[in-house]
C-alpha cells in the first residue's frame, strides 16, 4: 500500500464522515454546524481532486464552495437569525423507510460497479488536470458553453436581486 493510497483512504473517510455530520449531527442541530461540516467535506474532497491530479478544480472547489457558497449560507443563516432547530417529532417509520430506500439504491449501484469491474485495465492513469490544459479546453473547444454560462450567472444575479426586493409580488 503506497503513500498515495493511504492519503486516499484518509481523505475518503474524512469526506464521508463530514458528509454524514452535515446531514445527521448527533450533537447539534444548528444549521451553522452543518455548514461548517460542509466546508470540511468540500475541503477533503478537493484533497481527493488533488489525488486525481485535477489541481485546478481542487483550487476552484475551495475558492467557490468554501469561499463563496458557504459564506452565502452563513450570511443567510445570520440574516434569518435562525435559532437552533427545535426538536420536532420525527416519524420513525418514514425515517426508517428512507434509510432503507437510500441504502437499496446505494447497494445496487455499488454492486453494479463491483460486478462490472469498471476500473480494470485503466490503471495507467497519467492525465494532468493542469491549469494550462483546462484553460486551453475552456477557451478553445468549450468557448461557447463557457460564454453561455456567464449569461447564466448574469441571469442568476438579476433573479436574486429581484427576489430580494422587499415587496415581492
Amino acid at each position: 500500500m503506497s503513500a498515495s493510497d493511504i492519503i486516499f483512504y484518509i481523505f475518503a473517510a474524512l469526506t464521508l464522515v463530514c458528509g454524514i455530520l452535515v446531514v445527521a449531527n448527533p450533537v447539534s442541530r444548528n444549521p451553522v454546524t452543518s455548514a461548517m461540516f460542509l466546508v470540511l467535506t468540500i475541503i477533503s474532497m478537493s484533497g481527493l481532486f488533488v489525488l486525481l491530479h485535477a489541481f485546478f478544480l481542487a483550487a476552484v472547489q475551495i475558492l467557490v464552495y468554501a469561499g463563496a457558497v458557504i459564506v452565502l449560507f452563513l450570511f443567510v443563516i445570520m440574516l434569518l437569525d435562525l435559532k437552533e432547530e427545535q426538536r420536532r417529532h420525527v416519524n420513525r417509520v418514514v425515517a426508517a423507510l428512507s434509510v432503507i430506500v437510500v441504502m437499496v439504491i446505494a447497494a445496487a449501484i455499488i454492486w453494479t460497479i463491483w460486478q462490472t469491474k469498471l476500473g480494470d485495465g485503466l490503471d495507467s492513469a497519467h492525465l494532468e488536470g493542469s491549469l494550462r490544459a483546462v484553460g486551453h479546453l475552456v477557451f478553445g473547444k468549450y468557448i461557447l458553453p463557457f460564454e453561455i454560462l456567464s449569461l447564466v450567472l448574469l441571469v442568476a444575479m438579476v433573479g436574486v436581486i429581484l427576489l430580494s426586493k422587499k415587496e415581492l409580488k
Binding site: V94, L97, S98, V101, V104, I105, A108, I109
Partner: peptide, 19 residues
C-alpha cells in the same frame, strides 16, 4: 419530502427492476 421519498423509492424500484 414525502415526494422526495417516493421519488427515491421509485428510482430504487426501477434500478432493481432493471438489474
Amino acid at each position: 419530502q414525502t415526494y422526495a421519498l417516493l421519488f427515491a423509492a421509485g428510482v430504487a424500484f426501477v434500478i432493481c427492476f432493471v438489474l
